[in-house]
Simulated assay, not measured.
Amino acid sequence: MKARRKQVDYFTAKRRHAYLFWGLLLFVTYAAAVLTQYDFVQGLSSIPGALVWGVTHFYPNAESLAKFPDVLRTLVETLLMSIAASTVASVFALVFALLGSQTIGVHAGIKLVSRSIATVFRNIDVTAWSMILLFSFGQNVMTGYFALFFGSFGFLTRAFLESIDETGGHSAEALRATGAGYVSVICQSVIPAALPQLISWILFMIETNIRNATLIGILTGTGVGFLFNLYYKNLDYNAASLIVFVIVISILVIEFTSNYIRKVMIG
Rank of each mutant, 00 (worst) to 15 (best):
L215G: 10
V28Y: 09
A84H: 06
L203P: 02
Y237S: 08
F135R: 13
E255H: 11
D70Q: 13
A118R: 02
K6H: 13
S189E: 06
L252T: 09
Q7R: 14
G105P: 04
A180I: 02
S163C: 06
A159L: 13
G181N: 06
Y145I: 00
Y59G: 01
V88S: 15
V253C: 12
S258K: 03
V248A: 09
K6G: 13
F155V: 13
A118N: 02
R16Q: 14
L134A: 07
L65D: 03
R4Q: 14
Q37G: 12
K67N: 14
N212H: 10
K111P: 11
C187T: 15
F68P: 00
N212D: 12
G169W: 09
A62P: 11
L227T: 00
P69Q: 01
V183R: 06
H107N: 14
A31L: 14
H57N: 14
L134E: 04
V71N: 03
F21T: 12
L26T: 09
A85V: 05
L94K: 01
R122C: 05
T208D: 12
G43Q: 02
G181L: 02
V120K: 07
N140D: 06
S171L: 14
C187K: 15
F27K: 07
S241N: 03
T167R: 14
F96A: 13
R115M: 08
R5M: 14
G225F: 00
L242G: 00
D9L: 15
N234P: 07
G151C: 03
G217R: 02
T78V: 10
D165L: 03
A89E: 10
L112D: 09
P48D: 09
L242R: 00
S130Q: 09
M205I: 04
I110N: 01
F92L: 08
I266F: 07
L72Y: 07
S46P: 12
P48N: 10
D125K: 08
A177E: 09
E77G: 15
F137R: 10
I104R: 05
P60A: 01
E173L: 02
V76C: 04
R5L: 15
G223R: 00
L99W: 11
T74G: 03
I243A: 01
I206F: 02
V55W: 15
I254F: 10
I110M: 07
S184D: 15
L94G: 02
T78C: 12
V185C: 03
T78P: 05
E255D: 15
V248N: 02
I83C: 03
A62H: 13
F146G: 03
K2C: 09
A97V: 00
L112P: 05
F245R: 00
V120Q: 08
E77F: 13
F160K: 12
A3I: 15
L79K: 05
L51E: 08
A240E: 03
L156V: 06
G221R: 00
F149T: 06
E63H: 14
L24R: 05
R15M: 13
G221D: 01
M205Q: 09
M131I: 09
F121V: 07
D165N: 05
A193T: 05
F256N: 12
R176I: 03
P69K: 02
L161G: 11
F58P: 01
L235C: 09
L219H: 05
Q139N: 13
A174V: 10
Y145C: 01
V52R: 14
A13I: 12
C187W: 14
V106W: 08
F135L: 15
G138W: 01
A177P: 08
S136Q: 11
L235Y: 14
Y38H: 11
Q188N: 15
A93E: 00
T222A: 12
T214F: 08
